[in-house]
Nucleic acid binder design. Sequence first.
DNA 1: ACGATTGATGCAGTGACTGTAGTGTTGTGG
DNA 2: CCACAACACTACAGTCACTGCATCAATCGT
Lengths: 212, 212
Amino acid sequence: MVETGRRERKKQRTHQALVNAAMRLFERKGFEQTLVTEIADAADVSERTFYLHFPTKEDVVIGTAQARLDAGLRAIAEWEPGQTVAEVLGRAGRLIAEETWRSDLPSGLAELRVRLLATTPSVQARLVQRLMRTQGELIEALHRAAPESVRRVDAAALVGALLGALNAAAIVSVEQGDDPERIRAALHRAIDLALRPELVAAAVRQEEPAGG
Amino acid sequence: MVETGRRERKKQRTHQALVNAAMRLFERKGFEQTLVTEIADAADVSERTFYLHFPTKEDVVIGTAQARLDAGLRAIAEWEPGQTVAEVLGRAGRLIAEETWRSDLPSGLAELRVRLLATTPSVQARLVQRLMRTQGELIEALHRAAPESVRRVDAAALVGALLGALNAAAIVSVEQGDDPERIRAALHRAIDLALRPELVAAAVRQEEPAGG
DNA sequence: ACGATTGATGCAGTGACTGTAGTGTTGTGG
DNA sequence: CCACAACACTACAGTCACTGCATCAATCGT
């Protein structure tokens, strides 16, 4: 798994050069205004080479976000007897949130990356497109873990709710300009609300108009 | 709003011709294999005219799906004092589900349309991209209706959970080949699970291994 | 040393989508 | 009834993301 040859190192360097060049350009000119040709030029490789490293322009921004979700898969695969669905999904959600935390926020590119993710429609669309595959796997895993008590559509609703809540909360939190710690809190809060909305749902009512 | 002139009628006819031509081609050759030029040719208009009626090829499939979600907006705007968040969101969700039911399923194109929506990645991505806008509006509406008790990130988590659950359940149900009545049931079930997951979460555990 | 991989390249496409200038039909005010 | 404005539609040239293919050259296994 750890390729140590010179060939591999060169490849990694090219990859990193493309990421760096792309992000700098995205920051300076915006995502849509940046042409793939310009990214390749700035990284001093051919445009064709760009597509050896990334299937689409959007994937440069998405980066390793996909990998995080695979962590969630493992959580469900390790469902231990006696745990409720909420417990298992909660664990999966927290793994995803923490992994996002660890890999995205500390690095220098994190802020720009998250901002682009939250604000560029085509990047969002691409991320969701990839998310769909993982979501499907999560649903299957949950359903397979307890085929009799959790029907497939139920699994879909639960997993969809969890990921939908995480996604929406992350976007809103980022758009508000929250600092990393608040984003993290928002993600965990979203998990709680998605899996135990009675926390709010039962308690909160709209205030009676206070006459004025 | 009801334009009755001859000009307007011609326009509608062109629009319908494009939809019909497109759907027939999508069915015969598949979405990706169908060129916009072919759609335009089949409808006997120029390719440029196609883009006067649809911003993207994907939007032909999406059709009026967007309009349904606006019904949900109204439900939240009409939040009456004393109702819980769950009640309001539940009403919104049921409106969306019923509207989907009414506008999509009875028509002849419905089945193909839903199948394309559930199975074509680029169409999915485009739908979600549009959904994001409506989701943002729903979040704002919910937050504005009770700014003190429902913070923006909470509203995001709740709305995200609801739409995520509806989306995932719809896809899985369609992929299973469910008939319309089952899809409808899946949507309502998804609403219940998204807003009151304790229905399942508290009760369902993975069965203790039955000694094998 | 030598042949097999394989990362990078050049080039010629394809296909979705846009800008622009123009044409003909339809609605409208005098 | 006749300008005149509005607008659906058209023709055409262009942009840009992305792909297929043949080729080169550096690296790797033997």
